[in-house]
Amino acid sequence: MAQKQLVIIAGPTAVGKTNIAIRVAEHFGTEIISADSRQCYREMSIGTAKPTKEEQARVKHYFIDSHSVAEELNAADYEQLALGYCAAIFEDKDVAVVCGGTGLYIRALCEGIDSMPATDRVIEQALQQEYEQKGIGWLQQVTAAEDPEFFAIAEQQNPARLIRALAFRRSTGSSIVHYRSGTIKERPFGILKIALELPRQELYHRIDRRVDQMMIDGLWEEAETLYPMRRLKNLQTVGYSELFDCFDGRISKSEAIALIKQHSRNYAKRQLTWFRKDKDYHWYSPWESEALLAFISKALEAHES
């Protein structure tokens, strides 16, 4: 193959990305780089829907269980890590697969991201204090008003990310979404972007069933072990923050489960909005695996000629 090729498998939560990515990786005899901002944390497994041990045994995965939940990573960190993973795979393989739903991480790998200016810690601390007094509803309202473009694609139940983005906006006058020089970085490999989709009600049903299965698999117990660390930024996220509220007595267990489902559906909608803005994506149903493999093979062959 004349040029190394990166195949992106993106899409909303619970759409079936892992299964398709494994099929693609096995077909081309290669490995997978995760583009999920939470599956890299060792302590968070059930609530992040990591590939199972059996799936990881079938295909080697990078950026899974690679960091502690206490470590804070951003898109710039991911760019450098993922480029290193690509280099390792491309040493003896012509194709690498990226699988995940964190759109900013995928964009950082494909296009590059600039080093960001420091956020004013005084502003960030003041926002943190105000959030603790007024709650998540206030924080969502202020972020939506001051940085609507970020809020439209953000994980809206994650106060740490909302505070960081709002502090960045107030510190620099720019949205964190747009902090790039405008120059897309050259990559030493080709990029083919695939996104998966399902009819909305089918996707929402899959999300609900996944949450129910997570509870059966032990999400409640996993959250209990993480509860002492609940103030860590990486734990202020869907699937955990709702259960922490339950442990604190703010809501019932059934209410927490219902909120996890609702917030996951909301997040899936924002993910779809993000990926549909990028016209380079080719859209497939997760049930079209044979057609998808044929399309990828043909696209890669075209790059050879």
Results as ranks from 00 to 15, higher is better:
76 A>G: 12
188 P>R: 00
14 A>R: 09
13 T>Q: 06
106 I>W: 01
3 Q>G: 11
52 T>H: 12
251 I>N: 00
132 E>Q: 15
170 R>S: 03
202 E>K: 03
240 Y>T: 08
56 Q>C: 15
259 L>K: 05
84 G>R: 10
203 L>I: 03
304 E>Y: 06
297 S>D: 06
217 D>I: 00
188 P>I: 05
37 S>R: 01
40 C>T: 09
189 F>S: 09
249 G>F: 01
181 S>F: 13
54 E>N: 14
211 V>R: 04
63 F>A: 14
83 L>C: 09
227 Y>M: 05
96 A>C: 06
219 L>Y: 07
97 V>Y: 13
90 F>Q: 05
249 G>Q: 01
183 T>C: 13
58 R>L: 15
244 F>I: 00
125 Q>K: 15
9 I>Q: 03
14 A>H: 10
174 S>Y: 11
8 I>C: 08
240 Y>R: 01
74 N>P: 07
156 Q>M: 11
43 E>V: 11
20 I>C: 02
202 E>N: 00
117 P>T: 12
301 E>S: 06
117 P>M: 15
147 D>I: 02
32 I>R: 02
250 R>S: 07
294 A>Y: 04
244 F>W: 09
49 A>K: 08
269 K>I: 04
121 R>Q: 15
116 M>Y: 03
115 S>L: 11
262 Q>A: 13
75 A>D: 07
124 E>I: 08
118 A>D: 15
61 H>A: 07
37 S>A: 12
231 R>A: 08
268 A>K: 07
129 Q>K: 06
69 V>F: 09
67 H>V: 15
224 E>N: 12
115 S>Q: 11
88 A>I: 10
185 K>P: 08
150 F>M: 11
45 S>F: 00
14 A>F: 10
40 C>P: 09
236 Q>Y: 07
91 E>Y: 15
102 T>P: 14
108 A>I: 09
221 E>V: 02
298 K>L: 03
14 A>S: 11
145 A>W: 01
163 I>E: 04
210 R>F: 06
12 P>M: 11
47 G>L: 05
262 Q>M: 13
92 D>A: 12
109 L>S: 04
184 I>F: 03
81 L>M: 15
221 E>N: 06
92 D>L: 07
260 I>R: 01
207 I>R: 05
278 D>S: 04
127 L>K: 02
288 E>W: 07
34 S>N: 00
138 W>F: 03
300 L>E: 04
53 K>Y: 07
217 D>V: 00
226 L>M: 10
183 T>M: 13
107 R>I: 07
280 D>K: 10
220 W>I: 10
77 D>I: 01
88 A>D: 11
170 R>T: 04
121 R>W: 08
81 L>G: 04
84 G>N: 15
73 L>W: 06
35 A>I: 03
254 S>Y: 06
168 F>V: 14
142 V>C: 14
137 G>H: 15
